[in-house]
Amino acid sequence: MPEKKKLALIVHSGTLDRLFCAFTLGSTATAMDMETHLYFTFWGLNMLVKGAMEKAGLPATYKHMEEQMKDKLKEMKYPTPYEMLKRMKASGLLKIYACSPTMEMFGVKKEDLIPEVDTIAGAAAFLDLASDADITLLV
C-alpha cells in the first residue's frame, strides 16, 4: 500500500474568503484520500476559538459585498466553514494544529478552542510535517 499524499496548509487568515479557499482545498484533499494538515496561526488561529468561525466575514476592502456573498452561498447550498471542517475531521484524514505563540499573544486558552483541534504546536512541528508533504501552501 503506497503512503498517502500529504497536504500541509498554513491558515494565516481569518476572513471568510480565505477560509473557504483553505477548506475547499482541504475538503477536496480528504476526498482524494490525502492526509490533510492544517496549521492555524495569527488571524487563522482566532477562527479556532469556539463560535468565531460562524462570525467570519470579508476583509475591510470587500466588506460591502459580505451580505450579498453570504446570501448567494446559501442559495448555492454551500456548506459553512465549520461544517466543512467537521466533515473533513470525520474523514479521519484531517489534523488541526494551533499555533502556541499566537494563542499567548491573543490570550486564547486551550479550553477556548473548538474540540476538533488535535495539537498545540510550533514551527518545528509544521516544518517537520511540511518537509514530508507533497503540497505546501499558505492561505
Partner: peptide, 14 residues
C-alpha cells in the same frame, strides 16, 4: 445538481 466545487467531489467520495 445545483452543487458546486467541492460538493460534487466530496459527496461522490462519501
Amino acid at each position: 445538481l445545483g452543487l458546486y466545487c467541492p460538493e460534487p467531489v466530496f459527496r461522490t467520495r462519501q
